[in-house]
Nucleic acid binder design. Structure first.
Lengths: 179, 179
DNA sequence: ATTTTTTATGCATATAAATACGAAATCATA
DNA sequence: TATGATTTCGTATTTATATGCATAAAAAAT
């Protein structure tokens, strides 16, 4: 019994090493790779993506890929040329280092986010509301139906099925200081 | 032979009349209906959409629907709640409308109407929100409790008992172009 | 008024994507 | 550690979507 366990442990360790350093087979890395591929390439099917992952020493099955894409909220959309493309939700895109969002948050323009019922209310520094509302509108169309901005307050109307946590996460991603 | 042709022609005319005035079975109308449904409802599969079309006297097959969605560049995206949703591209403005289109979209400044819970959100061209909100307020007091306008977004608060369809219909009537 | 060309659509099917389920791996913690 | 809970993932399968082909319908050309 003890022998068995030792072997088991060694296998685990070995597997972990393989995963981390050789094949990068763990989930986080894979999601990262998928994001990178989708950000830079036109991919039209999961089979196709599967091949590209394989080329990068990342061997998985279509089933896993389907789950990954669901997790990443990747949408499949038709292109003008008749083909299809998988696209990452916009808030997943790398935030431009010089972008306004960064600056805004860096200056602390977004002060708070609170909820009441289905509605969210963002407080900002005076005068910043419109600018930030514009960012939210454009980077979270899949989470947010629309926003209405006053001077230092933004009313956020989430889509049906979107939770407070979703909005929070989106705000964090969209207005985080670091990529 | 001549008789046959006459009958054929009559059938065509009859069919056309049916299409235009009774059953709205032609392609343009169908695409329009699909847009409206997708704009105001969460639809997760083509089968589902098929049913909704059927309810509106629009009978087609899944094959046609697939082609339609491709044409409209409708993307299928995962939602946070684990389901999927078909979404129109955000730039999806006026479908090539000729003449008697009486759709919401026909009014140049009104871009979209969506719902979340009891609330409606109208997207407009930048700067138009206040003007359109005023129209809504004044022409639909029986449907709408009130509106709040930002720059390009209007929050519409319907009266109790008013359905999404009521609002859609009202908007269509209020903002249809001249015939 | 025919004939020709183009477009639209259904049927059947191929292709693509999602998931139920069980096994393995990982994590938490007593 | 040992144990139970949780997460991950592959296999097989179901479900969903896309398309080749034939035909009907509409439009254009003759």
């Amino acid at each position: 019994m003890i022998l068995y366990f030792e072997i088991y442990k060694k296998c685990c360790t070995f597997a972990r090493n393989i995963n981390n350093y050789t094949f990068m087979k763990n989930k986080r890395n894979r999601l990262q790779i998928i994001s990178e591929i989708l950000r830079s390439t036109v991919v039209g099917s999961q089979e196709e993506l599967l091949k590209m992952l394989s080329e990068r020493q990342c061997e998985v099955t279509q089933a896993t890929l389907s789950r990954d894409l669901k997790l990443l909220k990747v949408a499949k959309t038709p292109l003008s040329n008749g083909a299809y493309k998988y696209i990452l939700p916009s808030y997943n895109k790398p935030l431009p280092t010089t972008g306004n969002s960064n600056t805004l948050i860096a200056h602390g323009a977004v002060l708070s986010l609170e909820f009441s019922g289905q509605l969210g209310v963002v407080k900002t520094k005076p005068g910043y509301a419109s600018a930030i509302a514009w960012d939210i509108d454009n980077k979270a169309t899949d989470h947010v139906l629309g926003t209405i901005a006053g001077d230092d307050t933004i009313l956020v109307i989430p889509r049906e099925g979107i939770t407070r946590e979703d909005i929070l996460e989106m705000m964090n991603l969209t207005f985080s200081e670091k990529e």
